[in-house]
Amino acid sequence: MRIHAIPVLSDNYVWLIEGDQGQCAVVDPGEAAPVLAEIERRDLTLKAILLTHHHADHCQGVAGLRARFPVPVYGPALEAKTWVTHPLANLETFDLPHIGRFQAWHTPGHTLGHISLISNGAAFVGDTLFSAGCGRLFEGSPEQMLASLDRLSSLPDATMIYCGHEYTADSLRFAHFAEPNNESIIQRIREVNEARAAGLPSVPTSMSLEKQINPFLRIREPSLRAAILKHARSESLSDADAFWTLRCWKDEFDDLPLLPRHAQNH
């Protein structure tokens, strides 16, 4: 598989999976026109649409794509309301000839039916896992989201993670705040700043890297756990409560106004 990022909307990515014989699939089309343009530019034929969850910024391009290519739409069985023609249950597999075999993993938390799609060393994780971050809990519980992240972290370290948004720089800002002495985070900030300055995506990322820089995969690391306990003003927390404390902490951090550049170190 050759996988290409198509930026859409303000900060979404549609993933174009290019197979053999000019065939392709797309993951989470939040907009149709840029995807159709890229398919045409590469002289490809769309054979399937894959959805991770029901939010509009991940599926509102389906109608426009199917108007040009009346293809099957694979998506979560628990959210098969409008566009999904082939609902997927947990661990269900399906083959797309000349493209690949995919397995659906139920990864709830961001939404209740959210799935991740695993294929040949790649994981299309929607809004469950971001580079250095994770999705907000709009429908699921902390226990569900932590279990989903733990499940994804069981993938081989070499697995490439294809998430739904360009959130890496902002996520790293919080990760560095929570773990200021983590040298892997500091190095990753440099790399992402260079990539974004050059107009390049910061993703995909690898599971190996995420285990080093992503606080939501690191809540059991002693130094970060100590920071979480300090923030919560608690002597002990369950893993789920530690995760939820960290998620709320990031939400609070995201809502803080950015200081002017000259004031950020004061």
Rank of each mutant, 00 (worst) to 15 (best):
N12A: 12
G22A: 09
A25E: 04
V27P: 00
V27A: 02
G30M: 03
G30K: 00
A33K: 14
V35C: 11
V35S: 01
L36Q: 12
L36S: 08
I39N: 00
L44H: 08
L46F: 06
K47I: 07
K47C: 13
A48F: 05
I49G: 00
I49F: 03
L51V: 08
T52Q: 12
T52P: 01
C59Q: 12
G61V: 04
V62K: 00
A63G: 09
L65Q: 06
A67M: 13
P70I: 04
P72C: 05
Y74A: 02
G75E: 01
P76A: 10
E79V: 07
H86N: 14
T93V: 10
T93M: 11
I99F: 03
G100L: 08
A104M: 10
T107A: 07
T111S: 12
I115F: 05
I115N: 01
L117R: 00
I118K: 00
G126T: 07
D127H: 12
T128D: 03
F130Q: 00
G133K: 00
C134P: 01
R136N: 12
R136C: 06
L137Y: 03
F138Y: 15
F138M: 11
E139Y: 08
E143L: 09
S153E: 10
L155C: 01
L155G: 00
P156F: 06
D157T: 09
T159P: 00
T159N: 04
I161K: 01
H165C: 09
A169W: 07
A169H: 10
D170M: 10
R173F: 09
F174Y: 11
A175W: 01
A175I: 02
N181L: 12
I185S: 02
Q187F: 10
E191Y: 11
E191R: 12
N193Y: 08
L200I: 11
M207T: 03
M207A: 05
L209W: 06
K211D: 01
I213L: 09
R220D: 14
R220K: 15
H231L: 10
H231D: 11
S236L: 09
D239P: 04
D241Q: 11
A242Q: 02
F243E: 02
T245M: 07
T245K: 05
D254K: 12
P257V: 07
L258R: 13
H262T: 12
Q264M: 13
